[in-house]
Amino acid sequence: MIRYTLKRFLSLCISLAVASLLIFFVIEIAPGDPASFMLGINAQPDTVAALRAELGLDIPKLERYLAWTQGMLTGDFGMSYTYRTPVSQMVADRLWVSLPLALFALALSTLIALPAGIYAAARRGQTGDVAVMSATQLGVAIPNFWFAMMLVLIFAIKLRWFAGGGFAGWDKGLGAVMWSLTLPAISLALPQAAILARVMRSALLDVMNEDFMRTARAKGLTTTQTLWKHGLRNALIPVLTIIGLQFSFLLAGGIIIEQVFYLPGLGRLVFQAISARDLIVVESVVMLLVFAVIVVNFAVDLAYAAVDPRLRART
């Protein structure tokens, strides 16, 4: 287990290093000067020169890369060109919206999907299964922005149970924050839940055909006991993989939903930074997202090993 963890951790470090190199040098190698790109074609030469100096573009590349990564490690992400505030602070503010939103959505999606998938698998081919599968088909097919707008129409405008958009702010307390994130989380979660439920169902169906499930029945376990005691844990590996992928997606991919609900999240920050050609912010946020994805994958790898003893032994 220690060896497995160390190996996974090493692979995490290497991935991070490679990702940082890629992000940094793609922007460097891309044709055109970052400074003139940021300022647009009508910029004055002296403004460009000033920005070049500010960005440190006259310093050798390698030195700049090292300074950038070092800054990242110590929490100094540089200064946003458009907002003139430290990027770290901007990101931190947005993260306090995006992270709870992603976690909330993930929790919802998992809470809906796993029982639905298990229920469908246990009643394979029966009405309950068909109903769940049809519902997930719909869930996958309906675009989440449309669904989000419907939620706003019904629950915010018509019933007035929730606010139609905006973020309450942490100073109002956890309850208010959750309240303002509920509709966005539901709209993010449902399509993910639909996918996850299908994965759960098919993983469980695969496991139900395994010989050891028959062995369990021969010991005297009922079908339900067999499913819970022997089926579930064996079916978890593909489910964990999908949960890991979904978390990464939810963290950054909520941009449309953030737009619909007018939430100041990471997705909107990236969108605004790209529109404003603020490369410093883009670079930092992209790196942060890559970091999140890699760390989540690391966590999923460890979860695999916790679930399956065979992985602990293998290297």
């Binding site: 395994e210 010989d211 050891f212 028959r214 062995t215 369990a216 029945r217 021969a218 010991k219 005297g220 376990l221 009922t222 022997h230 844990r233 064996n234 679930v307 399956d308 003893p309 065979r310």
Partner: peptide
């Protein structure tokens, strides 16, 4: 009934299968 059969299986009748490689739960 199925409930009574569950009491009989493993208790009064035991069964051994062909494939020892897959007859055991790998995660227990």
């Amino acid at each position: 009934s199925e409930a009574d059969l569950c009491n009989i299986r493993g208790n009064k009748i035991g069964m051994v299968f062909q494939e020892p490689m897959t007859a055991l739960n790998p995660v227990q």
